[in-house]
């Protein structure tokens, strides 16, 4: 139990780059320690995908649950968010003061953030180009999200319904 807490604490500190990167880090730690087999982990991630909420948090909760039940789920979840929450509180305090000095740091962070998103878009490009449906939906999502004020939630739910209908009719 203690080692579970320590491993997820460590994952939380290293967890840069958003959900799928974090899932990769969790896989390295958990499968690398032989706590779960690669197969068991893959099945958990499939469940994490269909569970609402941030996928990295779902993965942590599921791994904890699988290993030690309810207590394990609570420990893994709280451990993985401990460092992010503490640092967010700290940076929030500093940023509130720093923003009075003209926001140079904020602008520098925006430069880096646009770079990180570019990397993510680049990584997604092959999957978006894999079929006419996914290319069309990706293009539609871009146009709606870039040029209208429509909440992207409707896009996700609409595209999901379309995908389910496509499966039902074409198998």
């Amino acid at each position: 139990m203690l080692s579970l807490a320590l491993v997820f604490l460590k994952i939380g500190v290293a967890a840069y780059g958003g959900g799928w990167t974090i899932v990769g880090i969790i896989r390295t730690e958990i499968v690398g320690r032989a706590w779960l087999s690669a197969d068991e982990f893959a099945r958990l991630i499939a469940v994490a995908q269909i569970t609402p909420g941030p996928v990295a948090l779902n993965a942590a909760t599921l791994v904890g649950f699988k290993l030690h039940g309810l207590a394990g789920a609570a420990i893994a979840t709280l451990s993985v968010v401990a460092a992010p929450v503490a640092l967010s509180a700290l940076v929030g305090l500093i940023a509130a003061k720093a923003s009075k000095r003209g926001g140079r740091l904020t602008e520098a962070l925006k430069t880096g953030t646009i770079g990180l998103i570019s990397m993510t878009v680049w990584a997604f490009a092959p999957s978006a180009a894999s079929s006419y449906m996914s290319a069309g939906l990706a293009a539609l999502a871009f146009v709606v999200s870039a040029f209208t004020k429509i909440n992207p939630l409707w896009l996700i739910l609409g595209a999901g319904a379309l995908g389910a209908a496509a499966r039902a009719f074409f198998g």
Partner: peptide
Amino acid sequence: PAVRGFLEGAFAVVPGLTAALA
């Protein structure tokens, strides 16, 4: 199958949403 189809559709919009965020 319906859930798998739903996920395929929902994940297809992710690249577009990410590009729009940038």
